[in-house]
Design a protein around this nucleic acid. Structure first.
Length: 562
RNA sequence: GGAGGAGUAGCUCAAUAGGUAGAGCAACGCCCUUUUAAGGCGUAGGUUCUGGGUUCGAGUCCCAGCUCCUUCACCA
């Protein structure tokens, strides 16, 4: 079947070649983005250009992929989709050259073409390019996924992301948002005089985090190397060198489990600022994320409207299907099945719309609110700052320095505490009791010092480290320290290993890093921000795999490759 | 690694009790110059994820495996 479609398309491709046309096209200049054409026409039609010289209809030239095709014999309507929009084009036998019309009749869904012609609305009001000339830019040999439902199979959408992007505008829009959010963060940091730097992915000593690394090998150097689990120790070396404000959008690799919020390779923004501390990092985190969220908060209300309208449309489709069944035009069983699906989809839409509506109400009051799953996150600054010890006491009912009580609580929670160091037990209890409550943006401040080998201690309390983690929607979003710059203490904490931290996440001594500190690192604040998770939050996406273009999947087994 | 779910035409999905595997879209042929998921008539299209087993007969039941999803474990 697929072979037949492919053969049909190949035959058309050959026919195009026989006409002396290259079916794979060439450079095509002066292309106007489709949203721009639509906007131009809208402005013109609204009379904003009424005194302009431009004659109606206005000319346009654009290019895109054919995503809808209605061949009516001597006239063909098609929809062209480009990177950010979609519009109708009309191809008419009378309006095109003979060769162009011959080409038009050989077009298929999925082909990429260029079009030129006047823009004018149809009788029913759809803005359309009435083509005077078309150019084939690329012939597709394989069929596109279905035009209405698009591609929904999650595995195919991920493995063949190009199909997801070309058929699901929502998915394409999400990845564009990702790019814009990262641009926004970069701009914000540059405005603060930060330098974007690049540090090694291939490292002979891995550090800066507790995680299992991927290992690889360099052939001519005859040595094993690790893919970085964190850029931290390199960025701090730059502080020593006098680069006072540095950041890196750092792809890190951790050889650990995969789930909805963990991908083996992920993007961590790490930044370090000399003469700052973790309080400065809090301000930066708040500022950068809340201002990134702000433009999307404005769209929440309209999106709720759109979802409710879609749900109403599905209801209407159900009713017309019922009528068709009553009139005996449609198979009742098939209609019932289709209606069940429509109703389920409508119910889902309304549920989601209700959350958007709730967020929109907050936005109307001047707050920066976005939906995430079935809750609303309020990003309005300042964000809550809470002490680790206070949260532990509030949610676990134990004081942080009452170790026997903490251990008893751990046993109640089913944590095998007897082999764990005190600090590890405390953290287990914290994760089980306090973390699930952290839905709204919260800086959890001042961690047990033993857990934080790279963090400076509170001068008034050596058991407390000046560290915060930022939680939003129960996810750990950022992790920041007032950085430790005393080489003697640093060397000491790197050699300690806590019981219960896991054998394979050994702290590794990096002698050169300690040497760097001995040359003097200014006091500094540093932070890591889980960029993929920030994107998840701001795009209301439940799985990290949907915000990474090509997340890791197990390779498909090719038959006969053994 | 544990538990649960899914895998049917290129795509989106059906198949009631174990009894000839269907529909829409896409494709192919014909008609149609303002259509909107265009429409009409017709044609073709299947290793039901893979491999075993039970049975007169398996998409359906059993066993093993593969991939994906959810969840738990793991996870700075």
């Amino acid at each position: 079947m697929l072979e037949k479609v492919q053969a049909d398309r190949q035959a058309k491709l050959d026919a195009i070649r026989a006409m002396g046309i290259d079916p794979y096209g060439w450079r095509y200049d002066n292309v106007e983005p489709i949203p721009s054409i639509l906007k131009r026409h809208e402005d013109f039609a609204a009379g904003k250009d009424a005194n302009a010289e431009e004659p109606m209809p206005t000319p346009a030239r654009t290019a895109g992929r054919i995503v809808l095709l209605r061949d009516m014999g001597k006239m063909i309507f098609a929809h062209l989709r480009d990177a950010e929009g979609q519009m109708q084009i009309a191809l008419r036998k009378n309006a095109l050259s003979e060769a162009n019309w011959g080409l038009a009749k050989l077009l298929d869904l999925g082909d990429v073409i260029g079009v030129q012609g006047p823009v004018q609305a149809t009788r029913t009001g759809e803005v359309t390019i009435w083509a005077e000339e078309i150019t084939i830019l690329c012939k597709g040999l394989l069929p596109m996924p279905e035009k209405f439902h698009g591609l929904s199979d999650i595995e195919t959408r991920t493995r063949q992301r190009y199909l997801d992007l070309m058929t699901n505008p929502d998915s394409a829009a999400r990845f564009r948002k990702r790019v814009r959010i990262i641009e926004h963060i970069r701009r914000k940091l540059n405005e603060r005089n930060y330098l974007e730097v690049e540090t090694p992915v291939l490292q002979s000593i891995y550090g800066g985090a507790a995680a299992r690394p991927f290992t690889t090998h360099h052939n001519t150097l005859h040595c094993d190397l690790f893919l970085r689990i964190s850029p931290e120790l390199y960025l701090k070396r730059l502080l020593v060198g006098g680069m006072e404000r540095v950041y890196e959008f750092s792809r890190n690799f951790r050889n650990e489990g995969i789930d909805a919020s963990h991908n083996p390779e992920f993007t961590l923004l790490e930044l370090y600022e000399a003469y700052a501390d973790y309080n400065v990092m809090m301000e930066i985190a708040e500022d950068v994320i809340s201002t990134a969220a702000a433009p999307y908060a404005e769209q929440v209300g309209p999106e709720a409207d759109r979802m409710e309208a879609d749900a109403a449309r599905l209801d209407a489709a159900c009713q017309s299907a019922d009528k068709a069944v009553a009139a005996g035009k449609v198979d009742a069983e098939a209609a019932r099945h289709a209606n069940e699906r429509r109703q389920a989809e409508a119910a889902e839409l309304r549920k989601t719309a209700a959350v958007y509506r709730q967020a929109a109400e907050l936005v109307a009051k001047g707050r920066v609110a976005l939906p995430y799953g079935d809750t609303v996150i309020d990003y309005t600054t300042p964000w809550r700052r809470a002490k680790y010890a206070d949260l532990l006491e509030a949610h676990a009912g134990v004081k942080i320095d009452d170790v026997p009580a903490v251990r008893q609580k751990a046993r109640q929670l089913g944590i095998a505490e007897h082999k764990m160091a005190d600090a590890v037990v405390i953290n287990e209890v914290f994760e089980a009791t306090a973390e699930p409550t952290l839905t709204q943006p919260t800086f959890v401040c001042d961690y047990p010092a033993e857990l934080c080998p790279l963090t400076r201690r509170d001068p008034n309390d050596p058991n407390t480290a000046l560290r915060f983690e930022l939680f939003i929607a129960q996810m750990e979003i950022a992790n920041a320290y007032t950085e430790l710059n005393d080489p003697a203490i640093q060397k000491n904490t790197l050699t300690q290993q806590l019981h219960g931290e896991g054998d394979e996440t050994m702290r590794v001594m990096d002698e050169d890093f300690v040497t760097a500190l001995m040359h003097g690192m200014p006091p500094a604040g540093g932070m890591g921000v889980g960029i993929d998770r920030v994107i998840m939050l701001l795009t209301n996406t439940a799985s990290i795999r949907d915000v990474i273009l090509f997340p890791l999947l197990k390779p498909e087994v090719v038959s006969g490759s053994e």
